[in-house]
């Protein structure tokens, strides 16, 4: 457990020393979201309708940006080898890395989303639901993405391949996440969607680190 905290601290420290990477993903998120009104038109009713989907899709894409860097630097400089050879189970260290990835690239999206939601004329209730869905959903994205990042480690064309592998697996998260906000806006209540999203997260917390660890061991061999 202590090693897990150590690796989270290390990755946060590294992120602090290369701030530009974190900020790039954030600005990407903002720009993509802001492009939609320009492409579709500023009509408030229409914007309100597309807001959940747009914000969620933009969050998916912004998460994808950082995914490839989840294990690649550690793989390149041999740290990953040392992690695999450390007496601490690799699964714990991988869990730490996923948590750090979420803190660096998922959590800022959650915090930024309500501000961007205002651009789409969402009311306070809808913004609240949006934040909750992203809060439950972005860890899920990091967890599933980690499997893809580990599978494509050190492969030529890994970045494009990574999105090909991971995006189809993001479909349920997108449906329940954006759907919850939609359901809230149309007065159906977001409870059902949210509990399904949380169930998915629970499932991923159990299986994703395990699959990621297996994929990493294969990549190291």
């Amino acid at each position: 457990m202590k090693s897990m905290l150590a690796i989270i601290r290390r990755d946060l420290l590294l992120a602090m020393r290369r701030k530009s990477e974190v900020l790039t993903a954030l600005f990407f998120f903002m720009i993509v979201v802001s492009l939609f009104p320009l492409g579709i038109g500023p009509e408030p009713a229409l914007l309100r309708k597309i807001a959940p989907g747009v914000l969620w899709v933009a969050a998916l894409l912004a998460t994808m940006l950082g995914l490839q860097r989840m294990f690649a630097p550690d793989h390149a400089d041999g740290t990953l080898e040392q992690m695999a050879l450390s007496p601490t189970p690799l699964g714990l260290l991988v869990g730490g890395k996923i948590a750090a990835h979420w803190l660096v690239s998922g959590l800022p999206l959650v915090l930024l989303a309500p501000v961007l939601g205002l651009q789409f004329d969402l009311d306070a209730g809808a913004l609240g639901v949006l934040v909750v869905t992203l809060l439950v959903g972005t860890p899920l994205l990091s967890l599933i993405g980690a499997i893809g990042a580990a599978l494509t480690l050190g492969i030529r064309g890994g970045g494009v391949l990574l999105s090909l592998l991971v995006l189809p697996l993001y479909v349920p998260a997108l449906i329940f996440g954006a759907g919850a906000v939609d359901a809230h806006i149309s007065g159906l209540g977001a409870g059902g969607h949210l509990s399904l999203l949380a169930a998915l997260l629970a499932l991923a917390v159990f299986f994703a680190p395990w699959a990621t660890t297996a994929a990493l061991r294969i990549a190291l061999e």
């Binding site: 499997i147 599978l151 494509t152 492969i155 030529r156 064309g157 890994g158 391949l161 090909l164 592998l165 699959a211 297996a214 994929a215 294969i218 990549a219 061999e221």
Partner: peptide, 18 residues
């Protein structure tokens, strides 16, 4: 795509399997 991007067939098999 994943299998064809990996040169070593054994690694391709295992990664594909996961």
């Amino acid at each position: 795509a994943l299998q064809s991007a990996i040169d070593d067939p054994r690694r391709a098999d295992k990664a594909g399997a996961i």
